[in-house]
Design a protein around this nucleic acid. Structure first.
Length: 104
DNA sequence: GGATTGACATCCC
DNA sequence: CGGGATGCCAATC
């Protein structure tokens, strides 16, 4: 299955612990720099079918876009357990925690 | 096969 | 950095 999804899933799984990635990066690395929104769908649909570290995926502003306080806390908790500092319950220092792959 | 979905990215101030 | 409107695109139902 060489579709965009498979690419994204691989990328998402490539995110190391204590780090995070933005939808744009995942989408870009997956082949479509504009398909960030597809990554969102992947988290919704594939995360329940695959074992994806969706909690390491955030938006470009360095925030978690979730609304569900329960799921939100779960993502925050998981990230904190990996060593990621979180401010105001959703802010993250991209400069410190955004995972930048070696492009290779 | 087409409307819908969707936790975004980006522009501008 | 931040927020309102829009574009963007592919998987899913």
């Amino acid at each position: 299955m060489n579709s965009f999804t498979e690419r994204a899933i691989e990328v998402i799984k490539n995110i190391p612990e204590g780090k995070v990635m933005t939808y744009g990066q995942i989408a870009k690395l997956s082949g479509s720099p504009r398909a960030a929104r597809q990554v969102v769908r992947i988290l919704h649909s594939m995360s329940k079918k695959h074992r994806l570290p969706w909690h390491r995926v955030i938006n470009s502003k360095g925030e978690i876009g979730l609304q569900d306080h329960e799921s939100l806390q779960e993502q925050i908790f998981s990230l904190q357990c990996e060593g990621v500092e979180i401010e105001n319950n959703r802010r993250i220092d991209l400069e410190k925690y955004q995972y930048i792959p070696a492009n290779g």
